[in-house]
Computed example of a mutant assay.
Amino acid sequence: MRVSRILLALVAVAPLAACQSRMQTAALDDDSAWYTGTMPDKPFDVPLVDTARLDPKYRRQTVRYTGAEKPGTVVVDIDQRHLQLVQEDGSARQYGIGVGKAGFSWKGEARVGRKGVWPDWSPTTTMVSLNPDLPRTRKGGLDNPLGARALYLYQGNRDILFRIHGTNEPWSIGEQMSSGCVRMLNEDIVDLFERVPVGTQVLIKRGGKARV
């Protein structure tokens, strides 16, 4: 599938996203300029973003980690719009993220309870109450709000309905736009997905703290 066709599909369905925001006017100017090609994947190729369009601090990179968390921990900083995967050598693999609008962002401790490849999407009860016209489900694919991968966060055996997932709105990385979930570039969530197993500890911080 050509990138131009992929982009048309993404734009057409973006307003349906539950973990996503409404389409931003600036993004409509020239969506195709955000994409440079595709990365092979199954059952769909992953559209690749021109990361030169991102603020450098939101590009995937390795940074020094000064926190106390053990290697293998995922640390999400809502304020800084960063997700870090702590490494053994005192560094962290860092990714830029998009986060929830004011009043929608969650913070706390959780674990990766399950993982999804090109996952299906369904709105929460709250989302449906706010927008009864939302579709009740959407199959995984290029037009899906969860993107190429999703990490489902649990506390104990309970799905807390908070996700770390891909996005088809790359211009939203670094922004406070979603309905609460943490969104990443599709190529970044694919990279993270391969590095974190089910059971991985996840800390979501706001104001420098994960605990209420």
Score class of each variant (00 low, 15 high):
residue 18 A to D: 13
residue 28 L to A: 13
residue 188 D to Q: 05
residue 149 R to Q: 05
residue 38 T to N: 03
residue 44 F to S: 11
residue 138 R to I: 11
residue 31 D to H: 08
residue 141 G to E: 11
residue 131 N to V: 09
residue 166 G to K: 01
residue 111 R to K: 15
residue 202 V to K: 03
residue 4 S to E: 14
residue 202 V to N: 05
residue 145 P to V: 10
residue 141 G to C: 13
residue 47 P to C: 10
residue 211 R to I: 11
residue 111 R to H: 15
residue 110 A to V: 02
residue 211 R to F: 14
residue 60 R to M: 07
residue 67 G to I: 04
residue 92 A to M: 08
residue 187 E to W: 01
residue 206 R to I: 07
residue 75 V to M: 06
residue 117 V to G: 10
residue 167 T to Y: 04
residue 129 S to E: 14
residue 149 R to G: 00
residue 183 R to D: 00
residue 9 A to P: 04
residue 125 T to K: 15
residue 159 D to F: 15
residue 47 P to K: 08
residue 104 F to W: 10
residue 155 Q to A: 13
residue 35 Y to N: 10
residue 188 D to T: 03
residue 47 P to Q: 12
residue 36 T to A: 14
residue 156 G to P: 03
residue 123 P to S: 11
residue 190 V to A: 07
residue 202 V to D: 03
residue 191 D to T: 02
residue 80 Q to A: 14
residue 12 A to P: 00
residue 83 L to Q: 05
residue 103 G to R: 09
residue 77 D to C: 14
residue 37 G to K: 05
residue 108 G to C: 14
residue 87 Q to W: 05
residue 147 G to I: 05
residue 38 T to Y: 03
residue 146 L to H: 08
residue 120 D to C: 09
residue 189 I to S: 01
residue 194 E to Y: 01
residue 94 Q to K: 05
residue 7 L to Q: 04
residue 55 D to W: 02
residue 195 R to P: 00
residue 157 N to P: 02
residue 180 G to F: 09
residue 147 G to Y: 04
residue 75 V to W: 01
residue 194 E to V: 00
residue 176 Q to E: 13
residue 96 G to T: 02
residue 90 G to D: 11
residue 147 G to L: 06
residue 180 G to Q: 11
residue 58 Y to K: 00
residue 38 T to M: 08
residue 109 E to N: 15
residue 61 Q to Y: 09
residue 116 G to P: 04
residue 138 R to H: 14
residue 62 T to E: 06
residue 3 V to N: 05
residue 73 T to F: 12
residue 68 A to R: 10
residue 90 G to V: 13
residue 69 E to R: 05
residue 83 L to H: 04
residue 197 P to M: 04
residue 53 R to K: 12
residue 207 G to W: 12
residue 63 V to L: 09
residue 62 T to M: 02
residue 36 T to N: 12
residue 101 K to W: 08
residue 178 S to P: 04
residue 96 G to P: 00
residue 123 P to Q: 10
residue 48 L to M: 08
residue 13 V to N: 11
residue 75 V to D: 02
residue 4 S to P: 01
residue 58 Y to Q: 01
residue 62 T to H: 07
residue 60 R to F: 03
residue 165 H to P: 00
